[in-house]
Design a protein around this nucleic acid. Structure first.
Lengths: 212, 212
DNA sequence: CGGGGCCTTGATGCTGTTCAAATAGAGTGG
DNA sequence: CCACTCTATTTGAACAGCATCAAGGCCCCG
């Protein structure tokens, strides 16, 4: 029942036609897929692995835009250049395709992909905004654990990113991240199996911690 | 020379055709244009006045999404309902039009408006994210003053929003806002004429305070 | 001229940061 | 397979920035 077919249809829910002429690229851990301020003439579809997008300020402060997984589209921008860079969190594989020069909204298949990716980006950016604006450290971490868990089927969730990545995503320090994770575990809401794997123990209580 | 015609063409830079069948609505200060969680079947074009969008959490914490001025489009959403509500900051006037049910990306004139508004939203949400994630109180306030000023021709800038609105936009308290404004004024970077009008005195120095 | 909301200013406290050090864990070579 | 090393993570203590609490002043508008 859990055949290759159903697995394939899960891996390419919108049909693979849009990505027919795309180039297949591989990146190793930490490698840059595209750079901040680079011209944004390619868009990418993540086939395997995980990616972070990050924005670096002049003085070294960093903000992680988001984390991406299989089937997510990255590289779509509102301007001519990339506001964020994209780096592979582990070894990963992407399809890259040139966006046909048209920045406008058209009926073509690729434009539909761009539209969907843009609205998805907007939704996630808005959620991220709410998180950064008015949430306590504990709420941010709780929401993060829930969000990551929501992307997986299995009960045990893997964290492909470092504590520093989490900190730069949540607008906190690694020490605070570590302390809040410890607190949530001590309260029995989550259980860690090493630093990079966890399981949610009390979902509703964790949701309460995450507030709205 | 500064005729009605040129004023009109400024008021409708992309042609008014898209808004031909739109209803004209007026709101008084503080009135709600649309509510959080309400079905998002209308989009709006702000003709006169200023608007804030805000998201309320269960415990009363509030996050301002953004501030909007003449010719801005509001009400475009990533889902079926409004994630933010919209309120008039002063008396204002909007055009409202039903988005034709099609959530997809099409070549129609209205779809083009929606596309442009969506990308504008994404860009602003990303900037806002960077501001909330890794900026100090002083940097946030400096950037805010620059951003608002960038929307006006004149040298003297009016603030249509209260200190509470600014605070909920920047993720700070009104007291901190007030102190930072005082500090920037004491440093000679800006000059206030009453609480709601200011002038930028040293633009480059203010830009430096705002960091990236 | 007076009322009331908005804004500013001051004193104190708490959350999260910073600095510092210990520990755990992953990768490597013997 | 184990010891070793290097990095990532955790933990602790002191500090700083912003929040909170509390007055006081300004300004707008009747």
């Amino acid at each position: 029942m859990t055949s290759l077919l159903s697995q394939q249809s899960f891996a390419a829910p919108q049909g693979a036609g849009e990505w027919a002429g795309a180039a297949r690229l591989c990146f190793r851990q930490g490698e840059e897929i595209y750079a901040q301020d680079e011209t944004a003439d390619l868009i990418y579809r993540l086939v395997r692995g995980a990616v972070r997008t990050s924005h670096l300020l002049a003085d070294g402060r960093r903000q992680i835009g988001d984390f991406y997984y299989e089937n997510d589209v990255i590289g779509v921008e509102t301007g001519a250049t990339h506001r964020f860079s994209a780096e592979a969190l582990g070894d990963c594989e992407v399809l890259a395709i040139r966006r046909s020069g048209s920045t406008a909204c058209e009926t073509g298949r690729l434009e539909r992909v761009i539209w969907q990716a843009t609205t998805a980006e907007l939704g996630r950016a808005q959620s991220h905004m709410l998180l950064l604006g008015r949430a306590t450290a504990c709420e941010r971490v709780a929401r993060f654990l829930l969000d990551i868990a929501a992307r997986f089927r299995g009960e045990i969730v893997a964290l492909p990113m470092s504590r520093q990545d989490m900190a730069d995503y949540l607008g906190l320090t690694i020490e605070t991240i570590s302390r809040m994770l410890g607190r949530l575990q001590a309260a029995g809401l989550v259980e860690f199996l090493g630093a990079r794997r966890y399981r949610i123990r009390r979902f509703s209580a964790l949701s309460d911690m995450a507030a709205a």
